[in-house]
Write a protein that binds this DNA or RNA. Structure first.
Lengths: 333, 333
DNA sequence: ATAATAAATGAAAGCGATTACAAAAATGAC
DNA sequence: GTCATTTTTGTAATCGCTTTCATTTATTAT
């Protein structure tokens, strides 16, 4: 692959001139521009990004760490960040952590080694201290979907408690009182926050339910199926289910189908996240909207500001979810 | 951010020694390893990937161009490539083309400028000639989901014709003869191939249908809804529908629901691709499986081989789809 | 103890670009 | 046509790292 030197030789100018043409510097004559352009085309010249980054000390890159690109939730997050990046003349480097400590570590270090100016981190497996340490090292680092008090102004997070509260309350307002909770068994803060929100809504409405109404499983449709099956096995009287997320809700839904329990006539179900599949389920899933685009956009803009040393005025970093009404919740009969 | 020089000074050794320690060269004394390791930790040293790439002339990076990361189909493709990359000690750089000519161009050039050793390209908007030109330039370039005769041994593609043929035949074997086709209106080869497959299956089974049985729309659920609505409006007698893809099938399904047409009792529907949502639809969608993981893995391995100049024996680059039996197709009654 | 060999280290060149600075060429004023 | 000014160009240093080659230090054989 040809270098700037080859182009210079071909165009009979110095490499400085070639560089000027490439970077559209004003101090380049028309004739130089032509000669260099021709030479570049002839040689199919490609400026070496590494060399450029090295000397100019900037990569124009914004890094994103996600759990798993193949999950549409993260796909949306990445796409949003990428859009903001493009608007700022930057591009995006993606790291997959696969929710594993070691892999998250490696992915984040790769992003740092590549000198990403800004970093959007969605971490499940790293400890607060590890993240704080990275944050101190990289000024353009922002956390998304996680709240660490010491990093409060660099965390974009969702009020999970409020979301679950809203979901539960929504069922209550529809006349339900026997409301089961399908929780996640992943040891992350979201799990607890959502369970607490459910509990609080119950309590605030004077509803007392035994612990049997809470069942948990892996936060996917299989986990939802398992948990729902357990609930049915326990012969619990219930007319509503608050699921940890849409995938678990999907599992609940299929178990309900299989058992001839009509949704929403006999059972109302509410999910959480409003991921792609929610609107494809039958009945279309009423759920709590996780405003990931809005949050990712905010995160990207914030990260860019922090990276450029721009002063930031403290603003709302904590997002509030909202209910998406669809067809899986009905009035209790 | 500290450099190798800082580490060398801190550890009282030369930068050459630091480099040897970093790269685990055998010729580094125990004492040097200790001193350097301590210095690196103390300074939170991060090797500059750009500098390393520049001098060593390799980036250990494999680039992927996809349409849109937020689409789970591409997410799966990326994840698979990333897995292969990791197994080979490489990492993955992702480009989004958004099915737009200009953006695909920019994305692919970014990947080239970053000196990706191998390139997996999923392009919809670039012409054959453009792709051939890139392929001649980058020896580790492989096309996926596209077939260009001149690049035959570097194209990993799916037999769309066969897939649609299979789908149609599957309905025919279930007793259907009045089978509509919901086609895509995107001007890419897949569209034609799938329509041709449908037509051929009909013909081979002696079924003659008017052109009215083919309706097209955008390849998403809205397009599917529109096309299905048109079909119903035309009062066409039909008991089966072959959809261009699962998203369109989802649209067909919802229009069927709204019109009280029971699936599969009154209408059988078969999709294409077997994307994430297929198993979440109601009824669960019978579809044609697009073996994207298998194909992406093959593509990644091939690209890596080509990049390293390894000779490749010609093998099957053309994949055949298979039917995924679920619940949206029934015997004609 | 000494020579021969092996192991560890450092100095310096170079990867491909940008850019400060100086020099050369072009332009304009008179 | 001359001199001052502006525009254009080239030289050389530099970014952070790897690696060759020469040199120093440690090890082994005799």
């Amino acid at each position: 692959m040809s270098t700037i030197k080859d182009v210079a030789k071909e165009a009979c100018v110095s490499i400085a001139t070639v560089s000027r043409v490439i970077n559209k510097s004003p101090k380049a004559s028309k004739s130089a521009i032509d000669a260099v352009t021709n030479a570049m085309n002839k040689l199919a010249y490609r400026p070496n990004a590494a060399a450029k980054a090295l000397v100019s000390q900037n990569t124009n890159t914004i890094g994103v760490l996600v759990g798993d690109v193949s999950d549409p939730f993260f796909g949306t997050l990445i796409k949003t960040v990428d859009t903001v990046a493009q608007q700022n003349g930057k591009h995006t480097l993606i790291g997959n952590g696969y929710h594993d400590h070691q892999q998250e570590l490696e992915a984040i270090e790769l992003l740092i080694n590549n000198r990403c100016e800004a970093l959007i981190i969605h971490s499940k497996a790293l400890s607060d201290d590890e993240l704080i340490s990275y944050a101190n090292e990289i000024k353009g680092l922002v956390l998304i979907n996680r709240h660490i008090e010491k990093l409060a102004d660099r965390c974009i997070s969702l009020d999970n408690y409020k979301g679950a509260y809203l979901a539960t309350e929504y069922l209550i307002r529809h006349g339900h009182t026997k409301i089961a909770c399908i929780a996640s068994n992943h040891p992350i803060e979201d799990t607890d926050e959502r369970r607490l929100g459910y509990l609080a809504a119950l309590q605030d409405n004077g509803i007392k339910l035994s612990k049997d109404y809470i069942e948990s499983g892996t936060p996917d449709s299989e986990g939802g199926e398992m948990a729902m099956t357990n609930l049915l096995t326990k012969s619990i009287e219930m007319t509503g289910v608050v699921a940890y997320n849409d995938h678990m809700a999907a599992g609940v839904l299929s178990v309900a189908h299989e058992n001839g329990i009509q949704v929403p006539e006999k059972l109302s179900i509410i999910g959480f996240d409003d991921v792609l599949i929610a609107r494809y389920l039958y009945p279309r899933l009423t759920t709590v909207r996780y405003p990931i685009e809005m949050m990712a956009e905010k995160a990207a803009i914030l990260a860019l500001k922090l990276a450029s040393g721009e002063s930031i005025e403290p603003e709302a970093m904590h997002f509030t979810p909202t209910i998406v009404r669809r067809d899986s919740v009905g009035k209790r009969n």
